[in-house]
Design a protein around this nucleic acid. Structure first.
Lengths: 263, 263
DNA sequence: TTAATAGTGTCTTTGAGACATTATACT
DNA sequence: AGTATAATGTCTCAAAGACACTATTAA
């Protein structure tokens, strides 16, 4: 406690060790679309517990040593971005990062009381490289394959992932975040593929096209068009970049969302 | 660390004190509607830091001693409910409690690194009693009065409160949670007053009435009606209870939400 | 009697969705 | 040529909102 005395005399009455130790970790649900599938970044654990299991990238919130040798503390979002960069390599640049929620059920980590602050990240499809070039064993995994039995995720990461996927699905409805999954410039069809992949449903191409262009600030024309037509024919498509809207008005509602409302 | 040896040999390699101490608190944004105003439960701090300031009810996540003397740990939501009960007294029964988010910016607590997991609670108007009968100095405060200068909330609680209010406003749109602010049975007009108070906008009574009844599972008729008409005249109103819907389809969108979408 | 409120009816406008059509580009 | 796709047009239906109207109750 001696190193805290300079921040105020009232600290003398405060003893953090009066409580059981509580650790805080930051875990990241990083989603991308690869091979027309929704995929999540997973790392293979190199230590106990759950040694050898796949887990979400993450780690303990920790102090950092700055350039002058001073110790600064990370903001939670910074910690999430750092974990992502360490595990996925520098070629991944997430275009969106938001807090998902915190998970602190007793016993979720057998070592001690651990509160995990989960973040949700969206990234466009990587050009080629596999993640983890400079990191440990990390890879993109189709989310759908994880609902199969056989290799459960470590800790309660399956639950965190499920919450992240559901958050992503909901956010595509009323925010322009689908554009975070594509590289600029993009076509309306590429944007539609994002929706179809995340929602797991085919959308009507014509209606989707007109709808996207009718929402103010969703996308913005670049004036250009693709070099070639589609791989199986068709005209060249116009190119767009992200617009300045932060919310979609009106929203793009999921077709199937009717049923989930009643128990 | 000796008391942890029985959970696995790998624990020997794990030392929580290798990290700086991190504390986890749970804070609650408890909202209700009193006197036609949106109000939040605040407590006056009895210790440093921010001694004498108003703050959100909350406290450290801590182990509890069970009836057999064994030590059990609280789930985060349990901790939030406990804090609420301790500070507001037993007469308050929150009809809704959900996680709002976590706040862990460095320096937000001058004592040490503190991560706060914030919860959002909705409660119906209390019959009479003021909170804090058995607790410390606690009171309901109009949210609007807190934007005035002069008595800022402790820590970053103003920010947490703002996030909670915005979450509440958004949730009224697509969930039936407005019913969490009223006692059953309730009238459509009482429900409309909830919307008008939280959103800060007058709604069209006739259209609102028809709209609420047209959403499946929002409310359910009790068959009864009020004993008397309104205080200034009018017929007696039919009574309703909460329906079984968890999401509103179609949603009740805010009138003004157009503008906030563009920067 | 006057005023306020509950509840319903009607009309207009907007948007979602089904479907059709035209133009373009690949095989 | 045949096929697939981009982009637009048309039609129908659902829903939001403005407004009107009746019935009921308190002051």
């Amino acid at each position: 406690m001696d190193d805290m005395n300079d921040t105020g005399s009232f600290l003398a009455a405060y003893d953090p060790r009066a409580y059981d130790p509580v650790a805080v970790t930051v875990d990241v649900v990083a989603l991308t679309i690869r091979d027309a599938e929704l995929q999540v970044l997973l790392v293979r654990r190199g230590e106990q517990p759950y040694l050898g299991s796949w887990a979400l990238p993450g780690g303990f919130v920790r102090p950092r040593t700055g350039p002058e040798g001073e110790r600064t503390e990370e903001d939670l979002a910074q910690a999430a971005a750092r974990e992502l960069a360490e595990e996925a390599g520098p070629q991944l640049r997430a275009t969106h990062l938001e807090q998902l929620g915190s998970y602190g059920a007793p016993g979720r980590d057998p070592r001690m009381r651990v509160i995990s602050v989960a973040y949700l990240a969206f990234a466009p499809e990587l050009p080629e490289a596999t993640p983890g070039t400079d990191a440990a064993d990390a890879r993109w995994t189709p989310v759908a394959s994880l609902s199969l039995p056989g290799r459960p995720l470590a800790f309660d990461h399956a639950r965190i992932l499920a919450d992240g996927v559901e958050r992503a699905r909901a956010k595509l409805e009323y925010t322009p975040l689908a554009t975070a999954f594509v590289r600029e410039p993009f076509t309306i069809s590429e944007l539609r593929e994002v929706y179809e992949t995340v929602w797991g449903e085919k959308l009507h191409p014509g209606n989707f096209h007109r709808k996207v262009l009718s929402v103010p600030g969703f996308v913005e024309s670049t004036g250009g068009q693709t070099e070639t037509g589609g791989p199986r024919g068709g005209p060249r498509a116009k190119l767009y970049r992200r617009g300045d809207a932060t919310l979609l008005h009106p929203a793009l509602l999921r077709p199937a969302s009717e049923e989930a409302a009643r128990p």
